[in-house]
Design a binder for these strands. Sequence first.
DNA 1: ATTTATTAGGCAATCGTTTGATTAATGTAT
DNA 2: ATACATTAATCAAACGATTGCCTAATAAAT
Lengths: 343, 343
Amino acid sequence: MTTVTLKDIAKLAGVHPSTVSKILSGKENIQISDGTRKKVQTIAQELDYRPNQLAQAFRLKKTFTIALIIPEISNSFFSGIAKSIEKESYQAGYNLVVCNTEENSEKEEKYINNFISRGIDGFIIVPSQKSTDHIKNLIKRKIPFVLVDRSFPSIQTNTVVSDNVISAYKCTKYLSELGHKRIAFIRGINELSTIRLRLEGYLKAVKEFNLDQDSELICGNGFTLESGRNSTKEVLSLEKPPTALIVSGNMLTIGAIKAIMEKKLTIPNDISIIGYVDDDWASCAITPLTVISHQLKYIGKKSFSLLLEQIKSGDIDIPVSRVEIESKLIIRDSTAQLDENLK
Amino acid sequence: MTTVTLKDIAKLAGVHPSTVSKILSGKENIQISDGTRKKVQTIAQELDYRPNQLAQAFRLKKTFTIALIIPEISNSFFSGIAKSIEKESYQAGYNLVVCNTEENSEKEEKYINNFISRGIDGFIIVPSQKSTDHIKNLIKRKIPFVLVDRSFPSIQTNTVVSDNVISAYKCTKYLSELGHKRIAFIRGINELSTIRLRLEGYLKAVKEFNLDQDSELICGNGFTLESGRNSTKEVLSLEKPPTALIVSGNMLTIGAIKAIMEKKLTIPNDISIIGYVDDDWASCAITPLTVISHQLKYIGKKSFSLLLEQIKSGDIDIPVSRVEIESKLIIRDSTAQLDENLK
DNA sequence: ATTTATTAGGCAATCGTTTGATTAATGTAT
DNA sequence: ATACATTAATCAAACGATTGCCTAATAAAT
């Protein structure tokens, strides 16, 4: 039950291992007689030869493996992207390693370093954005990588993000058109570029449509359900509570709904809500949710193709791309015209 | 910017590479003078030496990597398990490779073979159960692995499953106690051991409590949202529709709710529903859902520890374990006493 | 018949690390 | 002073695949 190597085949075929290698690697430009070629091929088949990829990778410094570094695999936003990337990479003959950082920069760095020394071919990273050192290191070492969902204004890299400014602006504008003046923004981890950009879009609309500009309406720092629940409770307890909510995350939105339920408020009568939710459950929530939904499949697809381009380019410097992908405002029942009495 | 090797350090320290290796590998039983040890260590530090794990893995036939093979990463049941396993393996110093099979047996087999030739240390597999060949192959080659959620009655392997017979029995019993006689079972992919066992539990309760035993009430073959929606529509369109529904999957449940909404029925007044749902959204569904919820964290934890035990045991044969993990019936508002009028 | 081309396949080094065997240089006991 | 241990470090092979270079051997050309 020992594994079959080139040597074994060579011995049986009465040729040199290198000959076997040349035949089996399927290159066109080698000179081998049809006889030996056939012989070697059949023996390889009979023995069910599988090249030791560990040896190959070691020799060739090429693993055909890429790493996906994400903050939270059980969050559907990331698992949706992961699914898409997995599909793409599988089709391209690459293996995918998925790592969970739990928004922990140290873990992220450890993973990246580990994978570098494992000879990974490239990275797709949703960075936790608490440090840029390891990202800069990748650039310095010319290791192909793509940043997804979050980007560093200070570093020029290949990036795939969604249209955060626009999406938040769209939400706010839509709510404003429904008559809402006090719109809270439950924000998520506020150091993230994603969140800052959404906030930018929100504020832009707030100014443009003359809505209540009140820092108390911008709340939260985290992506957990609990964080969403607490932040929502907080804004709902203000002397002048908001009449609408924009919630910037999957889990956050569940938390927000829970808080609303606990306050015995109903959606959308008492309060309107738009969530950044990518799941199918949004349509069968307590009130079917109006959401901003990302095109996860396309984000994944684009990220992978951008990475592959880099990997294939070898050492040639190719220009950096920054791709922004449109997200969609899907209107359901959780947003309603503001009742004049509530104003 | 070339990577630092043992040779580089050896040259600078004026010793042989093997000496460097022995020092840096940190074994206790080697004889090295304090002088050279210190010298080599400081040089290694200064050069920021990182062992080439590819070379190490090749030489030692040990990758410190395990593979997790799951059908669908974007399903919270699996991503929840993945999250837990990732955490465990990270703590144990192992890397985790996650593969998505999309319930495709061929893809599953390809992945497994690929990883074998990459020298993976072990597998945690949720098999698609359309074939057993590659599983048997793992046994034959003595490669450590653990089956999760699904098991083969014909093969003795290390397995971690949930208490499917019991959980389905519990659901059915509970609904029966609420007065329901006609309970539909939206089943999922019916070749899976998981599903067969749930069905067993359901049927056991149906007999025991003298409920309607009607094959039309058992419906569906798939885990998608659409499958859940269609199956639910089907059972709701029977001349004698069920008054309660047990739905055997995350996405299926969303589909079922959608179907119910489309039929303009209300939960639980017109129909009771229990879903096998592991997500937090269940509590803020259109009607907060009564669910069977798995202890994903514990399933992952147990799977990993079982695998690690095998890996560490080396060639020694250790007894096969079959672990069954309790799931919980969480009662919310989607199940109600059957209105006598509806009987 | 001699030179030149062409074809088929062998040779050997290499990737970076590990490890058992070996040697050289000390120190200790008789 | 000789034998014997002990310590410190080197040597060399090995893991399996790849690849540029080299060498026969055959064929073609002069």
